[in-house]
Design a protein around this nucleic acid. Structure first.
Length: 447
RNA sequence: GGAAGGGUGGCUGAGUGGUCGAAAGCGCUACCUUGGAAAGGUAGUGUAUACGCAAGUGUACCGCAGGUUCGAAUCCUGUCCCUUCCGCCA
């Protein structure tokens, strides 16, 4: 969401951004509707102004005058009953288009249609060479008895899994290691709610429109008092109460913490790291990555967010700072990775700049995304109404950034596949050993 | 899940249909007073939005959304949140 004034002044640049981001938006149509909206708004406000004058007159009117005023008032009311629905219709159209307006990306963001045009900034870490055929994490999980996909599918369904033995231990170790790392870097640790109201997800841009949309939004919906089938239908007499959503990352919860708040500039930037379970419906991903742990419906993650003052250059630095932390973690985990500058077509509407980190997975023989760093400028804070007062006393929207610190499952894949040895065992990365029972160094095959 | 009470400006809190954008107090800001401070005095002090270079003017906002009425902080309906008690429960 952007300011309409800004959209009027930068119509062309926004149209280009929308085109580059594959967003179906005609800015000229938006501006035409905006004009219509302003005209109707002025008409309605004029009517209301007359109404208010009548109310003032009523205060000191004689009985005779009162009858006359009431008659005039009724006319105003009738006129408003015509205009207000018109205004409402136009405002709905306006809102519908406004929520699609993208942030104009940084000028040096690569322009591209889809992920194939993302640009590799650099690769770091050595890909190991093996004197044997490296197994995939699925095979390793089986022989080491640390992940059970079969029972996961039986109990949870498609893409379900159990972590067990060292698998469970290792994931907890990863989470604790990452949390400690962030606390050491002065990020405030939080464990936010994962069951949230719609506005947290709308505000951070996780709904494709202004409301939850079954067809495209990758979000699980939850209701405690209605059958799931009736969720989007508000039956007469039946309450759509406790309509909640499961977040796919801690980001919405962490950022919505500041919704409707006015912060002090002196408190910015605010750095936060949050631990949360993450839920993804993967509704548009049927048939992709169908085996293994790569694409699952639930996992755990440490996330980092920064709430910054409205200073683009500063946020560029802060984004680099956040990416550097994620890179430091991958280096300490001794995982080879690459950094990608995400192109316009692979970037969602609100983003100004986005980097992905991908880790090499020798068993799958591919790079796999383990983290994503985004700078939204004020796109999210406008939706969330998160502001701050600057030194001069002006109230402005904050700028918001987020980045993965460490998710649970994809790095686990990378660890298993990169640290496997010829005898089928898997070495535990040194930095995680202090978080394993008895400083365990190796996971050995159970059979 | 049951019962009761409550949500008003930065805070406390008055207000049950028209004189209420809203009393009073506190806080805050400026000025006066002072050697300086306190106390005291005077004035000011919400947000959003439309038009405008601006001053300003209009509109909206008393949790949120609807409704009744010529007119709603006030009446009606729904909803969200908070407090207390009971029940259930990790």
């Amino acid at each position: 969401m952007l300011e309409i004034k800004y959209i009027r002044e930068n119509a062309e640049a926004i149209q280009v951004a929308a085109n580059n981001k594959n967003i179906d938006l005609d800015v000229a149509t938006l501006l035409a509707i905006d004009k219509e909206r302003i005209e109707l708004l002025n008409e309605v406000e004029t009517l209301k102004s007359v109404k208010n004058d009548l109310n003032d007159m009523m205060k000191s009117a004689t009985d005779d005058e009162r009858g006359e005023i009431i008659a005039k008032g009724k006319k105003i009311k009738a006129a408003l009953e015509v205009k207000l629905p018109e205004l409402r219709t136009v405002q709905e159209k306006y809102q519908h288009l406004m929520v699609k307006v993208p942030t104009i990306p940084a000028t040096d963001v690569p322009v591209g249609v889809d992920e194939s045009e993302n640009v590799t900034v650099y690769e770091k870490g050595e890909k190991k060479t093996y004197d044997f055929d490296p197994l995939s994490h699925v095979d390793l999980a089986q022989s080491l008895d640390i992940i059970d996909f079969k029972r996961g599918a039986a109990v949870s369904g498609y893409r379900g899994y159990y972590l067990k033995n060292e698998g469970a231990e290792l994931v907890m170790a990863m989470m604790t290691y990452a949390m400690h790392k962030m606390i050491a870097k002065d990020f405030m640790p939080m464990i936010p709610p994962t069951l949230v109201k719609d506005y947290a997800l709308f505000g951070t841009g996780y709904f494709s429109g202004a409301q939850y949309n079954h067809a495209t939004d990758e979000v699980f919906q939850v209701s405690s008092s209605m059958p799931a089938d009736d969720f989007n239908t508000e039956h007469k007499g039946q309450k759509a109460k406790d309509k909640k959503f499961l977040v796919g990352t801690a980001e919405p919860s962490l950022l919505a913490y500041y919704a409707d708040q006015v912060l002090a500039e002196g408190d910015l930037p605010i750095r936060i790291c949050g631990y949360s379970p993450c839920y993804r419906s993967e509704i548009g991903s049927h048939g992709r990555d169908t085996t293994g742990l790569y694409r699952v419906h639930e996992f755990m993650k440490i996330e980092q967010v920064i709430i910054a003052p409205a200073d683009v250059d500063l946020t560029e630095k802060l984004q680099e700072e956040m990416v550097a932390i994620s890179e430091e973690i991958l280096m300490e985990l001794e995982l080879p990775y690459r950094k990608l500058a995400i192109c316009t077509g692979d970037m969602s509407a609100g983003k100004y700049r986005m980097f992905d980190l991908e880790v090499w997975m020798p068993g799958l023989e591919r790079w796999g995304e383990t983290g994503s760093a985004s700078n939204f400028l004020d796109w999210q804070s406008r939706r969330l109404n998160a502001r701050y007062k600057d030194a001069a006393g002006n109230v402005k929207h904050v700028y918001m950034l987020n980045n993965t610190v460490l998710p649970s499952v994809r790095p686990l894949i990378a660890i298993l596949e990169n640290f496997q040895r010829k005898d089928g065992s898997v070495e535990i990365p040194k930095v995680l050993r202090p978080f394993m029972h008895s400083n365990k160094k190796v996971i050995t095959a159970k059979k």
